[in-house]
Design a protein around this nucleic acid. Structure first.
Lengths: 227, 227
DNA sequence: TCTATTAATGAATTAAGATTCATTTTATGA
DNA sequence: TCATAAAATGAATCTTAATTCATTAATAGA
């Protein structure tokens, strides 16, 4: 959780006690992340999470209202981290085409180094639950749509720069790009799924996840037509 | 359930009693389809389903071993229907390019006329659950991968015909196409999600789902690059 | 019409796991 | 060191909903 500069600053400003509390809370979040990644939301029990974090069941409730709140907090913090990370990197890239390249590359890169969150993200976020009303679905849908809006703004800029076609909706294009990223992760995830964190190791096609960004960029820009 | 020719033939061959039993089973499946679509697997209770089907709770158990079996049966039958439908239509199309067009179009078309299954499919199938081990995840993953393999075979053929590029993996391309279809459904689904079955009505962009196949085909073949 | 057989019913039972809270442990500071 | 407050514990409780099964209703054949 406290993994970026801003948060470290915040931490320093807290009292000893508050800092302690934050540390324990983060222990629990970390444990939850791991358990949710392995079992999924419904199969993960508070017992499992408490054991993993080496606390008693009751302690978990001292830090989180209930299981749902624990899940949502975890998801929000991690997703926030992903989006801040990606936006930061993209903002540093020069032109539109380069921004798109960086977007793809850094999103994959973040996933590659956050194995457990990665699994959670994929088993929930992609879960097109616009239909269903519970709090978790609401939150994940919100987050996702905000990300799509951001990508759409990049697309818009790229259209204005004449880098991509202007005869297609920026938002729809954003959806397509986001999906292409997922699609490419798919087969990679399967082989990695065998065991442990998917991070770092090089996959069946001898490629790390990040290395696939070229493939996505190519397909996104040029399509599949033979030339 | 009994919605195709083959099944109607099978029905005719059964005894009165067996036919009766099949009819009731289908009542329950139909009710389950609706309830699962509204609430999702976990929130849907057997009570809900029984009430919807106008049977008692116990009756449901006369026809299905448990909730999981009910769900899997439903999913399998519907997914089977989708894939048979699509394959049939595709097989009637002439060249590779045309087959791909028909694939996209008919998949959208099937969804458009099977609203509830459509919701279930999207809230479960896309749920990249390679990670998680329960029976439902296994089944949906299996089905999905079989479909991907089928699409990959179309891609392979298209490569051999020189219709699409040969420097990219057919399977990865299949994943990308499948995802593009989903991506396009996304925004459409959101507006439709408001209420009722998503079928038939024309969406916010004034387009029915099926009408979007042109957009997908274009993007898939030509990419987004300005020309 | 009258059994016997089969099917349907839904109240009662189980199961699983989330949540509480009285008790115990640890930390603080006088 | 001791008294007090804060934090942690985990067995007991509560919830929710799946599953069962003794009872009732429907059906079929004699």
């Amino acid at each position: 959780m406290s993994n970026n500069f801003k948060e470290r600053l915040e931490m320093a400003a807290l009292s000893r006690k508050e800092r302690d509390r934050r540390l324990r809370r983060d222990d629990i979040l970390r444990a939850a992340e791991h358990i949710f990644a392995i079992k999924g939301y419904h199969k993960a029990s508070i017992q499992d999470i408490a054991k993993e974090a080496q606390y008693a069941v009751g302690t978990v409730y001292l830090y989180f209202k209930d299981k749902e709140a624990l899940y949502i907090t975890l998801f929000e913090e991690k997703a926030q981290g992903l989006f801040l990370w990606v936006r930061d990197k993209v903002s540093q890239a020069p032109g539109s085409k380069e921004k798109i390249r960086v977007l793809i590359e850094e999103q994959l890169s973040y996933f590659e180094s956050n194995g457990d969150f990665f699994k959670i993200y994929f088993s929930e976020r992609v879960n097109y639950r616009w239909i269903i009303k519970d709090r978790i679905s609401q939150k994940t849908a919100e987050r996702f749509l905000r990300h799509i809006d951001y990508i759409a703004s990049l697309m818009k800029a790229a259209q204005e720069e004449g880098v991509i076609r202007s005869d297609i909706s920026a938002k729809r294009t954003a959806h397509v790009l986001a999906s292409m990223i997922n699609a490419t992760i798919f087969p990679w995830l399967r082989q990695e799924a065998g065991k442990g964190a998917p991070a770092a190791r090089s996959g069946g096609n001898g490629k790390s996840l990040k290395e696939m960004s070229g493939f996505i960029l190519d397909l996104f820009f040029n399509g599949v037509k033979a030339r």
